[in-house]
């Protein structure tokens, strides 16, 4: 999933300083699962912002709605009826959702309430970790199912570098060395010799380096 975390309340409040009425839009997708921007967080943020503004003697009116997903245009339709008189929209989706709302409502000011962090999963209740670098050309079959592109701090494809010690990365004692994990797994699977092959430089044109990306499935496109 896309993992996001809410910006500090102070920062969100600053983004809508000059507004009297705002629409807060949650998302029932990834950000609900990672407890950052679902229905509950949306209601909670709306109350917190109202209380803060009340205390400051500058009351704020809020409207809330949680979309099934903010990254599909059809799920934004219900917002058409809510958006008319608000001064701004606060999106509690990932960066995709914020942009979808901005695109649909060209004359509305839209601000993000979350920082979109990474593509990852949960480790335990309340802890998430990055797992995919979205490079557009998966190599997990070469590295024992552990991604060096995003889990190695240097994206080294022929690791580990000289900073790997006691299974940890040089950048911090609580960061696992991806190449130690790869080594351990390849060894356990009896495939250590495969790591002797020099992995060639990666073609980064399938990643963000190639410019904004699109995915097209011709067979499911509905002709107008």
């Amino acid at each position: 999933m896309i993992v996001a975390q809410q910006k500090p309340l102070e920062e969100i409040a600053r983004l809508i300083n000059d507004c009297q009425k705002v629409l807060l839009v949650g998302c029932a997708g990834c950000v609900t699962v990672c407890l950052a921007g679902g229905e509950k967080e949306t209601e909670f943020l709306a109350s917190a912002l109202r209380i803060k503004r009340q205390l400051e003697g500058n009351p704020l009116e809020t409207v809330t709605f949680t979309c099934t997903r903010q990254c599909d245009p059809e799920y934004l339709l219900p917002l058409d009826n809510l958006i008319g008189d608000v001064d701004a929209v606060v999106s509690l989706a990932c960066g995709v959702g914020v942009q979808y709302i901005a695109e649909r409502y060209p004359h509305k000011w839209v601000v993000p309430a979350l920082d979109t962090k990474f593509a990852g999963g949960s480790l335990e209740q309340g802890v998430w970790a990055e797992r995919c670098g979205l490079c557009g050309n998966c190599i997990l079959h070469l590295t024992g199912g552990i991604c060096p592109v995003i889990r190695c701090s240097k994206s080294i494809l022929n690791g580990p570098c000289g900073g790997s010690q006691d299974g940890k990365c040089e950048i911090a004692r609580d960061v696992d060395c991806a190449w130690q994990l790869i080594y351990d797994r390849m060894k356990a699977l009896g495939k250590l010799e495969r790591l002797m092959e020099i992995m060639p430089p990666k073609d980064w044109s399938t990643a963000r380096d190639g410019g904004p990306r699109r995915a097209v499935r011709e067979d499911v496109i509905i002709d107008a």
Binding site: K154, L157, C161, G163, E170, I171, I198, W204
Partner: peptide
């Protein structure tokens, strides 16, 4: 060389490159 991570230096907010790694550089 791979190089020390920028976290240790005087510009820890820099973007790192790592387009290729040290073994690939040798080969290049």
């Amino acid at each position: 060389l791979s190089g020390d991570h920028q976290k240790f230096g005087n510009h820890p907010t820099a973007k790192n490159v790592y387009d290729i790694d040290s073994i690939q550089l040798i080969n290049l």
